[in-house]
Simulated scan of single mutants.
Amino acid sequence: MLLDPLLSYFPPEYHWPVQFCTFTTVATYIASLVTSNVSQVDRVWTFLPTIYTAYFALLPLFPNTQPFFLFPYTPKELDVPNELSPRAVLMLALVVTWMSRLSYNTWRRGLFSLKDEDYRWAVLRQKIPPWLFQVLNLTFIATIQNMLLLYIAVPTAIASVYQSRAPLTVTDYALAALTLVDLALEFTADNQQYAFHAYKHAILAADKGDTSVPAYDLAQQWPGARLNWVPADARRGFVTRGLWAYVRHPNFACEQTFWWLITLFPVLPPHTGAPPLSLKAIINAPSTWVMLSRLWPLFPGVALSLLFYSSTPFTESISVSKYPEAYAAYQARVAMFKPWDTWFKGLMLEQKGPLKRKEVERLVWGAEEKKE
């Protein structure tokens, strides 16, 4: 096969995922050129991690030979037992729940439409030369993002291959509970943002005398998103209430937390059979390279966090350009991802004087709002 030289560099459990990832990278890149729309990867983002996770969790069920290209198979040289790994199956169930939440939010926002493109790419097109944008499309948008979507499923591969016979432990149940709480918070953040924009469009349309936009109906919103919006919120332009009062991107914070929790399933004690990951082994590593090689099971969580910490400032720069005074005040008062930083920001503003803090909070929440 054409990809055999490439696959030889990877352990056998990654042969089919690398094959499939190569296909999706080429397919999404070609689709972006044909449609002049680079959001093709965005449309499959909700499904690909689940596909890779399902492959790793269900390894014993696949044939040992590949009947045709892209058909999932378990290479003969991969020694896995006939039974499924309980830990990997639990991780798959959580990832399917994650996919359901994200798919629902993507669908109701209309982002599955082949004509839709992330607004950030349109802004970036105007800021850089066309040739550089196409380089970015090939390297980051198509290639790196597809690789990342495979990489964040690696913890399930560790659980399935190295811990196939390990029973579930208290650690697994605790992580699963935390993961479900995190998904509930992320779902609430999604709903609050969706409800805000529904309210905003209704209020701004009413201001213009536009009767084509239906009035905002509080009862149509999910529990947890039925906040008491006021017209000043709509005219501010962006959501600052609910979970958004404590961090500027609660959905992004929860997304990172979810994949960090998935990353921790196969590496936290008392698991056995996992690749070496212990504090003693890391401290006593003879070189930085060896230390990093011992930390590699944590890298999926690190990789996703790097994506959010590098891309979110660009997203916020667009918001600042649209709402220069109000969004700058929001940045000064509310943390990007960590809620405890919001408390610290409030304390720092207080040091500049109560009037300074009140002025910032008036821009963020209105004259009567005060958040800790």
Rank of each mutant, 00 (worst) to 15 (best):
S36L: 13
G346N: 14
W98A: 03
L347P: 05
P86A: 00
T288Y: 06
Y162H: 15
C21N: 04
K127Y: 08
A195Y: 11
F252W: 09
G366T: 01
V123L: 14
V364S: 01
F314V: 09
D217Y: 02
E325G: 04
L6V: 15
D79S: 15
Q331L: 14
S278T: 15
A253V: 00
W259L: 09
A332Y: 06
A232D: 14
T25A: 13
N137I: 10
P72F: 01
Y55D: 02
T24A: 05
E186T: 04
K371S: 10
D341N: 08
P276C: 01
S160P: 02
K322W: 09
H15L: 08
S113A: 09
P275L: 12
L136S: 14
Q19V: 01
I283M: 14
F258E: 07
F344E: 08
Y119D: 10
N191G: 13
F10D: 07
N191E: 15
L279C: 00
N191D: 14
V239M: 12
S8N: 09
M91R: 01
E13W: 10
V123W: 13
I144T: 06
A27W: 06
G209S: 08
L304T: 05
R101N: 14
A206T: 03
T28L: 14
W45H: 09
A303K: 00
M291P: 02
T74D: 01
I144E: 11
G346I: 02
D210T: 01
Q192A: 09
S100K: 11
T53R: 00
Y14N: 00
M1F: 12
S164D: 00
